[in-house]
């Protein structure tokens, strides 16, 4: 069985907070076992070893926000067999995609003493807008158990088991009472993909969509109901424009709410 070579894995960072890569290092109970199953060829946060590839698996964190990165992701794609995005930045553009609705140049002028040194794109976009992506692992941050599942399944040659149902199902399984129905708290749970284990509603806090839109989510119907129940449109826009605000289903809805308001 040991004749099979270990898959070569590279971990790459784009515009992001590093939290998703850290999830791999935080997987303390599983880390040694995983390290024994893969060959970590490129992972600057963990090792100074730099292997130029090609890689069997590329884990890509972060969004594309600079012209250099837009070229670098193409290069990584060419050297990788499976490309997996990890986290909301790589999958949907991240919180930094808020710039997509604002004046980018004005931001640069306001933040940096010497704006002329800054070379960025006007938008923050997901990896899939630049290169083909084989698998997207959602979350802000990703769930480390799901990351372990993805790695182990790839090593074993099977499809990863990452559920695509709503957060509501997890609330119900764990016995959390619906905070929208019982307390009138706006919550994106019905339209958000599972993955976090439904943490926020168990603390009387509405889901803010860390894992992005659930499959075939009906964001329009949910927002109509929340509006009718008294949540003002600008508040809903803010609720939708968080870490996955630029994901198509949330983006479309928040833009529609903005034109209504």
């Amino acid at each position: 069985m040991s004749a099979k070579p270990k898959p070569k894995v590279g971990v790459f960072k784009f515009a992001s907070c590093d939290g998703c890569q850290l999830s791999l290092l935080s997987a303390e109970d599983e880390l040694l076992t995983i390290a024994g199953k893969i060959d970590i060829a490129y992972f600057l946060e963990a090792t100074s070893r730099i292997d130029e590839g090609p890689y069997d698996i590329a884990l890509v964190e972060g969004s594309i926000t600079t012209p250099t990165d837009a070229l670098r992701i193409r290069d990584i794609r060419q050297r990788s067999k499976f490309l997996i995005t990890i986290g909301a930045c790589a999958t949907a553009g991240g919180i930094q995609a808020l710039r997509n609705w604002a004046d980018h140049d004005e931001f640069v002028r306001a933040v940096y003493a010497r704006p002329e040194y800054i070379e960025t794109l006007a938008t923050s976009t997901p990896i899939a807008e630049h290169v083909p992506v084989d698998f997207e692992l959602r979350g802000c941050p990703i769930n480390r158990h799901q990351l372990v599942e993805v790695i182990v399944s790839l090593v074993a040659g099977r499809k990863p088991k990452t559920p695509s149902h709503s957060v509501c199902l997890d609330c119900k399984r764990r016995g959390t009472v619906c905070i929208t129905v019982a307390q009138g708290i706006p919550c994106l749970g019905p339209v958000t993909q599972s993955g976090c284990g439904a943490i926020c509603p168990s603390y009387d806090r509405g889901c803010y969509g860390c894992f992005g839109p659930a499959k075939q989510c009906n964001t329009g119907s949910l927002c109509q109901q929340l509006l009718a129940d008294g949540t003002p449109a600008p508040e809903l826009v803010q609720l939708l424009r968080n870490y996955n605000g630029y994901a198509p289903e949330f983006r479309q809805q928040s833009e529609q709410l903005e034109t209504q308001a």
Binding site: S166, C168, K172, C178, G189, V191, N218, S221, L222
Partner: peptide, 13 residues
């Protein structure tokens, strides 16, 4: 179908 969120709440309760 236009209104339903397909969120599973009805089946869970």
């Amino acid at each position: 179908g236009q209104r339903c969120l397909s969120c599973t709440n009805c089946t869970m309760v």
